[in-house]
Design a protein around this nucleic acid. Sequence first.
DNA 1: TTTAATCTTGACTTTTTTGTATAGATTGCA
DNA 2: TGCAATCTATACAAAAAAGTCAAGATTAAA
Lengths: 158, 158
Amino acid sequence: MKFSAQEEYGLRCLLRIAQSNSPNGLTIPEIANSEKITQSNAAKILRILRIGGFIDSSRGQSGGYKLTRTPEQIIVADVLAQLGGRLFESSFCNDHAGMELICTNSIDCSIRSLWRAVQSVVDGVLNKTTLKDLIGNENQATILLNNFVEETLELKQS
Amino acid sequence: MKFSAQEEYGLRCLLRIAQSNSPNGLTIPEIANSEKITQSNAAKILRILRIGGFIDSSRGQSGGYKLTRTPEQIIVADVLAQLGGRLFESSFCNDHAGMELICTNSIDCSIRSLWRAVQSVVDGVLNKTTLKDLIGNENQATILLNNFVEETLELKQS
DNA sequence: TTTAATCTTGACTTTTTTGTATAGATTGCA
DNA sequence: TGCAATCTATACAAAAAAGTCAAGATTAAA
């Protein structure tokens, strides 16, 4: 299980833009340079973010990319969903969609319920994390959240 | 973010073996047939599970695959790690490995700490789920665990 | 209006992942 | 022993993901 390259780079580019204080935002060369990727690749990724409504672009001299909203208003889960096509995609057993609680015998549904459990905890973190949480000194928050959940999981187990 | 095909098929094949009550275990044709994959593909995946020490194989007539331990003793996180090469692999910022708590300014470390937060909650579920939890009627457990974590996350947020 | 800086798009190439084929090795049994 | 059932391993092929290239469109400013 892993994040795709596009998810990682996309989120990173978005963070660069969020952290910029230039009035024109950031240009493709600037972003590509900070992230050590080619301009083509940056353009491709920024396109996805623009279509997703996270950034606005303007062309010509003094053009560049800016956030469409404040960092507080951008949810990391939404960003990753846009970059990855979907957040989790469980393949099989679409027969029993919506009735996981009764379908307990097939392997399809065992796996499905496990995938859902994982999806649920990941969403729990990503839906409550905004771009702002990842900027500057605020990223302590995710570490704390992380520790908290670990504790509660252990609690539940004992 | 998603599980690879190998992770999904591997776990599914292992569950088939775990659920079998035949004294010889299951053969490749049987597994391939239940999972609707080719025998070649099943063989490839079963090889990984064998190398990981989750199953034993015996050849010749009356051969097949069996678990090396009871289902209770097989942790889903271990299985997925074997199938996927690793459980999560965060790419960048190896400069600051081990000092995440002080490195708060770079994007590298912001992303890294987010990835770690996600990894932590996923591990929380997968390290506490055994094959037994996924067999028969026991898979309710993962759903309950899931709900529990969701609640605690909401609690923390308010 | 011309130019330079910038974004936009689609096609293409490379790499990685996934899946298949084939030849071989081991075992149990008649 | 010889055969049939089984696993084993490596190389090959197909598909998907990632990354690159090149031509074009828009804009601001000289």
